[in-house]
Simulated assay, not measured.
Amino acid sequence: MKVAEKITEQASIYEDLETMSTNEILSNINKEDQKVAKAVQNVIPQIEQFVEKAIPGFLKGGRLFYIGAGTSGRLGILDASEIPPTYGMAADRVIGLIAGGDKAIRKAVEFAEDSLNQAAEDLEPYQLNENDTLLGIASSGTTPYVLGGIAYAKEKKVITGGLTNNPGSPLALAADIPIEVVVGPEFVTGSTRMKSGTSQKLVLNMISTALMIRIGRVKGNKMINMQLSNKKLINRGIRQLMEELEISEKEATSLLEQYGSVKEALENRS
């Protein structure tokens, strides 16, 4: 059995931060950030496994859940919230839950992450089933809220992943697919919103983007299912139609107005 290493709590390799100039602070933070992409690269096989496991159930109407506390929970909610406008998916297909509920998105809720039972209560209304997939996110890998959610999901025959920055953590051991991104000690000791949070954001981007591409929500390299909710996106849709169909801006605009989406316009014009 792997022994948990609390790397996220180890002392920074930098001393006397308060004596550094602004340039030194920024340069050293940047130096640490450059380690993150390599750490994520090291776990691509595990990320791939999680995405591949999620695809069949998602195609049958299953959902992808992210659960976490604090920064980890907020990052999950951020990624989930981007899926409907970017890929035209219903808001109930990729769902982010945070310990302490919606009010914890903006303001820390004391002790919310310490309950082993709260995640189950938060998940219960969704009636999890075997087509769903759940990713628990916790830098420490010890957050009770996340561990409780993993346990509940497994009871429901849901595939689980554990995204953590400590190897051999309870989360990594509990999840079906552990994704252990070892970024090393933080620039400010224990400040896991920094490298750890950055690594989580990268992994979540990879998971949701790969999933959306694999289920057909992208054509070529274009977001053909995006919601046309503002002028920027409407103009992007017009450009996509112009490029794909080799037509004028006027004709592309007319098609988009007629069909309401790039995908529908492409399918009906082809």
Rank of each mutant, 00 (worst) to 15 (best):
1 M>I: 14
8 T>Q: 11
10 Q>D: 06
10 Q>I: 00
11 A>M: 09
13 I>K: 12
14 Y>R: 08
15 E>H: 13
15 E>M: 05
16 D>W: 12
17 L>P: 07
18 E>K: 13
22 T>M: 07
23 N>C: 00
23 N>D: 12
26 L>H: 04
28 N>E: 07
30 N>F: 01
31 K>E: 12
31 K>G: 02
33 D>Q: 10
34 Q>P: 01
35 K>E: 09
38 K>C: 00
38 K>V: 04
40 V>Q: 01
41 Q>L: 08
41 Q>D: 08
42 N>L: 00
43 V>F: 00
49 Q>S: 07
50 F>I: 13
50 F>C: 03
55 I>Y: 11
56 P>W: 05
58 F>A: 03
58 F>W: 04
59 L>M: 14
60 K>Q: 15
60 K>R: 14
62 G>A: 15
63 R>P: 07
64 L>R: 06
66 Y>V: 04
70 G>I: 07
71 T>C: 07
71 T>L: 09
71 T>W: 01
79 D>C: 03
79 D>F: 01
79 D>Q: 09
80 A>V: 14
84 P>A: 13
84 P>L: 05
86 T>Y: 10
87 Y>C: 02
87 Y>K: 07
88 G>T: 08
93 R>M: 04
94 V>L: 06
98 I>L: 00
99 A>Q: 08
104 A>H: 12
104 A>W: 07
104 A>V: 01
105 I>Y: 04
106 R>K: 10
107 K>Q: 08
117 N>L: 06
117 N>I: 09
118 Q>D: 08
121 E>V: 11
122 D>K: 13
123 L>E: 08
124 E>M: 02
124 E>A: 15
125 P>V: 10
127 Q>R: 15
129 N>L: 09
134 L>D: 09
136 G>M: 11
137 I>G: 10
139 S>Y: 00
144 P>T: 05
150 I>N: 01
151 A>E: 14
153 A>Q: 08
153 A>N: 02
163 L>V: 11
163 L>T: 06
163 L>I: 13
165 N>K: 14
166 N>R: 09
166 N>Y: 03
169 S>D: 05
175 A>R: 04
177 I>W: 02
178 P>M: 04
180 E>I: 03
180 E>R: 05
180 E>G: 08
182 V>L: 10
182 V>D: 02
183 V>N: 00
184 G>K: 01
186 E>H: 09
188 V>P: 04
188 V>L: 15
191 S>F: 07
195 K>W: 04
204 L>E: 02
204 L>Y: 10
207 I>L: 04
212 M>I: 06
213 I>M: 12
213 I>G: 03
225 N>G: 09
226 M>W: 03
230 N>M: 02
230 N>L: 02
231 K>Q: 12
233 L>F: 03
239 R>V: 09
244 E>V: 15
244 E>G: 09
245 L>A: 07
245 L>Q: 13
247 I>S: 09
248 S>A: 04
248 S>P: 09
253 T>I: 03
255 L>W: 03
259 Y>T: 12
261 S>R: 04
262 V>E: 01
267 E>K: 15
269 R>Y: 03
269 R>E: 05
